[in-house]
Amino acid sequence: MAVDKKFIGKQYAPFVYEVGREKIKEFAKAIGETNPLYLDEEAAKKGPHGDIVAPPTFASLYAGGPVGEMLYDKELALNLMMLVHGEQDFEFFEVARAGDTMTTNCVISDISEKSGKSFVTAETMTTNQNGRPVVKARWTFVIRG
């Protein structure tokens, strides 16, 4: 079933996420990371950021929060059984540090159809507690037939 294009432009409430120290380590371990800047406080203290920082795609958690809300949006009614992630584009402005508070705004930027598939794209912009941009992202999902 086609996704109604009238939802292009729909925005979701700003999503606030505090980057947890242990969550960074948990995420890093789950993706097979061994980088001490993510996992070792002592090494990270001597490193370029003075404390542990998150791997780049940790943005999936803080920037992905409102995207999850979109995926489960009852009004949009996406067929999650047939939904897969199609494309992802992250633009990184600043690293995410343990203790940072991220605020992410999310808008549905495109809905289209091609070869019997539906495509839904969300754009997110995340800023930290200092009001500085952290990550801008485009998330494209495909609903298969």
């Binding site: 980088n35 800047l37 370029p48 780049p56 199609g86 992802q88 633009e91 990184f92 600043e94």
Partner: peptide
């Protein structure tokens, strides 16, 4: 070199 600050953009199709 190991510092995630060096990554400016990452994009791909699944």
């Amino acid at each position: 070199g190991g510092d995630p600050a060096s990554l400016k953009r990452l994009k791909a199709r699944f």
